[in-house]
Design a protein around this nucleic acid. Structure first.
Lengths: 343, 343
DNA sequence: TTGTACGCGTTATCAT
DNA sequence: ATGATAACGCGTACAA
């Protein structure tokens, strides 16, 4: 493993001073140098395969061109497309992503953010936040560029890129009402997460607008966005003995669990009960039945978050207002929804 | 954004010399310092929330405690669990992962590896390699710690952590033969990838051992590990008009496509044709029919790769032999396989 | 046991 | 237009 070439090596080989090389190689300062010299330096640098030492650069500049990306769990199918968008969005701007998982814990998130910060990341993209997230508010207030993605914190000072939750739920209820459903139940997600809370709020609001049965027994709250909680939620709805012909689930995984529970109770989806999801995760189009759901622009949400963050990083700290982007969503109708059975 | 505390700040606050602080805070050198002083320094350091500047440290030590993780596409459901294993394996050893996607291109992989190296990563974990991968062989030969995961390169000098492909295919064929199948077709994966090649080799070998029909018309080669190629492969098998009652697919995504093609041809799985996958990706247990497949220890493979890499990084360069780990696999029988229909 | 001093590879300021 | 030089924050060989 031979030593990597440094500025000094290039300078000696090119017969100029080290600082001349530095300037010639830096696009922002190359104009200060005689074109011929620039050419020569470039040639030598290429010949020696010179690569700037990132550690030295960031020691000087206080920049790493690296950002921390924090997710609850990369294994959750919602996140990979978002992460991919983030990485691509960062890459075109010359940034790299360090990825970390928190498993949803608030303290673990703070710990991870700390580790990332001491590695000198230029900013943080967080998919792991809860609505009340004091640590994140504090970090952001300290001037660290931060943007949340997919979810947001209640504190409006923290930038975010999220999906149009209200419109998604509205479209689902419109679809179900259009099919003739009068009583639509809801398996709501965790209310500590903006996604769970906003979808639930939208559910209540638009249920009323579409004239659907407002009985409180038609709502079950899931403690987490997973299949197990979806099963439990459906069990709860059935045990409450309310009458409903459709269930809006706060995300796809809850819907998958809900459908499994229906099956366990000898009920057919969509024959007896229609079920909807949210997110349009990979493979939900291949389930049985294929899931009617809301497609979010997972990839674009990621790209947008990267853009917002890089802009924050590269703009002067003083005129950095928080930015809040809301991405559009789309209704995808598949076979898990059908008109209600005639009474 | 107030300035972060440095060694100097701590030294002044503690009334000792900067180098004393450095030693006191470094576990390897703390024993050189009077316990009382160590205590005091630690206290002050905590009070000032001192965090070593990673750039400065790595400028001195030539270490970043960061490794590059290169995958074809994080969006492919096979990879997230592996990546999660890698990250957890790295984290406990104090390393962080920078993630990058290549979309399968060999030149893009080399480019990415270059970017990562110039960021000073201590090593590389590659899930993206092809069997012939000159760039990787060269990088590894230059002394950069490298380990491939899930796949391997033909060059045995490059360390790897892979799954027991032969045993997986053997178990599948044993299962199918046990059900009474006599003619089992194969949708083989890309032969440029070790997974595709090894599974195909094992298929030929064990097909013979189990006395199954060896007709060449019973094999279709897929150009990629995706649903689309699975459909095309099944179309090809059907068009070839060979007789078979089961199809072993080189991975789950091919199997998903194959089942879709069967349906398109008016055939039932497993009624008319049994189908098997490989990998046991998330959600394949919820498909219709739930997929019989081989479960690989995705998470553990990742953890093992992290271990191997860190060991390479931290052991003296001279006695670094390549290491090759093969992880066991498990047959998971679900509903996509059944006895052949009576002739 | 602790202090001194140098250098890691850059960027940026100053002078020429 | 280019050269000299200080400084970024840390680790460590050497001296005391």
């Amino acid at each position: 493993m031979q030593r990597r070439a440094t500025l000094k090596d290039v300078a000696e080989a090119a017969g100029v001073h080290l600082s001349t090389v530095s300037r010639a190689l830096n696009p922002n300062t190359a104009h200060l140098i005689t074109p011929a010299v620039v050419e020569k330096v470039r040639a030598v640098s290429r010949r020696l395969d010179y690569r700037p030492n990132a550690a030295a650069t960031s020691l000087r500049t206080n920049r790493t061109r690296t950002v921390g990306v924090v997710v609850p769990d990369i294994t959750n199918p919602v996140f990979p497309p978002i992460i991919r968008g983030i990485e691509d969005g960062l890459a075109v701007r010359g940034y790299l992503a360090i990825l970390a998982n928190t498993d949803g814990g608030l303290d673990r998130e703070e710990e991870v953010a700390g580790i990332l910060r001491s590695r000198g990341v230029d900013g943080l993209i967080l998919a792991s936040v809860q609505r009340e997230d004091a640590a994140i508010s504090r970090i952001s207030a300290e001037g660290v560029p931060v943007v949340t993605v997919n979810r947001r914190v209640d504190d409006p000072a923290v930038s975010s890129v999220v999906n149009d939750e209200e419109e998604g739920i509205r479209r689902l209820l419109e679809h179900l009402a259009g099919l003739g459903h009068k009583a639509v139940a809801n398996i709501a997600g965790p209310q500590t997460l903006s996604t769970g809370a906003e979808r639930y709020r939208a559910f209540k609001k638009h249920r009323k607008k579409f004239g659907l049965d407002p009985s409180p027994g038609l709502v079950a709250f899931a403690a987490g966005f997973n299949e197990h909680q979806g099963e439990a939620g459906m069990d709860e709805l059935i045990a409450a003995r309310g009458r409903f012909t459709a269930v809006v689930c706060s995300n796809d995984r809850l819907a998958i669990g809900a459908i499994a529970a229906l099956r366990r109770h000898g009920l057919d989806c969509p024959g007896d009960i229609s079920v909807t999801g949210y997110n349009d995760m990979p493979l939900v189009d291949r389930l049985s039945p294929p899931l009617t759901t809301i497609r979010i622009e997972q990839y674009n949400v990621g790209v947008a978050a990267a853009e917002v963050l890089v802009e924050m990083i590269e703009s002067p700290a003083d005129r950095r207002g928080p930015k809040h982007l809301v991405r559009p969503v789309k209704l995808v109708v598949r076979a898990s929804t059908a008109p209600p059975r005639r009474a």
